[in-house]
């Protein structure tokens, strides 16, 4: 991990991104607990290094799909926390005008976001299809499909990786393996210690990295993106992460042994990066300032969401269709 080739500024960027993700989610959880927002809130606290590292390697022209646990991807990509939080609150000012909520936050126009998805594995087809579009159009975008460990047990993982490999599509699959599909520990239902090696079945290269180390994730993703962009086809990266919370906000995760969280906290990505920065001479006050700025930013996001209007009930029937919407919705 002691990698001298990264400047203080680069590492500080990772630190800031991770802190912003965690703070956003802590505020969201607090609002949920207070009853200020409803629905399913899936937190990625403990997975921040994966999002920060991966998205540092993703270029502006690239596309990506996200998941039900997608707040971190949105923040790491540079989306506006105000509009993200407003979407969690179901407000008109949210990215999806309150029609999607936490599981579907996306900025499709400005951020090349192809949707956060509530169906495990759905992003595999969509990301491969986006890569097919790039191949047909001849652009140089790579599409990154982000998903969790459990999606590797969906049929789409195999169907779409097989096609992406056969057709050399510019797609990178980024698996955040937090070891749990809701309550089920992955190794109770899967025979291999790692998941990415399944790519070998399709002659697709892969890497397994420590997902609590943003630099390690970044390096693996840079390699994967270069591979895909150069026309060599797909690449699969698995980042080993920890999910500090239950499956969703309000799940006490009683099914999980204490050792899981003990190990998780020993490997906390933000703590580790903070220590690393201090070893490089960054002062504690500077880190504190980053945390304070994130706290202010996310408090403001909550305030923005609180102050925003709900969509007018009449908007329930808009946006179902691009054309002839009224008639299609009427009967």
């Amino acid at each position: 991990m002691a990698n001298k080739k990264y400047s203080k500024e680069q590492l500080t960027d990772f630190y800031r991104t991770m802190v912003r993700i965690r703070t956003f989610e802590e505020k969201a959880a607090e609002c949920f607990t207070k009853g200020m927002l409803a629905g399913n809130i899936h937190l990625s606290i403990g997975q921040e290094a994966a999002a920060a590292g991966a998205f540092a390697a993703i270029q502006p022209q690239d596309y990506f799909t996200s998941t039900h646990r997608g707040h971190g991807h949105a923040i790491a990509r540079g989306m506006d926390p105000n509009l993200c939080m407003a979407e969690l609150f179901g407000k008109k000012t949210g990215y999806c005008q309150g029609k999607g909520g936490s599981m579907h936050i996306a900025d499709m126009k400005k951020m090349n976001h192809l949707g956060a998805n509530g169906i495990v594995g759905a992003g595999q087809g969509i990301s491969a299809g986006s890569a097919l579009a790039s191949k047909i159009m001849g652009d140089d975008a790579v599409t990154v499909g982000c998903f969790g460990d459990s999606s590797t047990n969906e049929g789409t993982f195999h169907e779409n990786l097989n096609m992406a490999a056969a057709w050399k599509l510019p797609v990178v699959w980024f698996i955040e393996n937090n070891c749990y599909g809701v309550s089920t520990e992955i190794h109770r239902v899967t025979n291999t210690p790692d998941l990415a090696p399944r790519a070998a079945a399709y002659d697709v290269p892969f890497a397994v990295v420590d997902g609590t180390d943003a630099v390690a994730v970044y390096e693996a993703m840079v390699k994967a993106m270069d591979h895909a962009r150069s026309g060599k086809g797909p690449y699969v990266v698995e980042a080993k992460v920890y999910r500090y919370q239950g499956h969703y906000c309000g799940d006490p995760a009683v099914y999980r042994p204490d050792e899981y969280m003990e190990k998780a906290l020993e490997n906390d990505a933000i703590e580790k990066m903070g220590k690393r920065l201090m070893d490089l001479g960054v002062k504690a006050e500077e880190l504190e300032a980053i945390r304070k700025a994130a706290d202010d930013e996310m408090n403001a996001a909550v305030q923005f969401a609180v102050d925003s209007e709900y969509p007018d009930p009449s908007e329930a029937v808009t946006d179902v269709y691009s054309s002839d919407n009224e008639r299609c919705v009427a009967r």
Binding site: G125, I126, S130, K135, I136, T143, T156, N160, N162
Partner: peptide
């Protein structure tokens, strides 16, 4: 072959890809 594509027998897979390609402005 870029515009007339034989797929494997993977209906969920290639229908999913059509969605992704369509979201990018293609007309599969």
């Amino acid at each position: 072959p870029n515009r007339v594509i034989d797929t494997p027998i993977s209906e969920e897979g290639f229908c999913g890809m059509a969605v992704g390609a369509a979201m990018r402005g293609m007309r599969p």
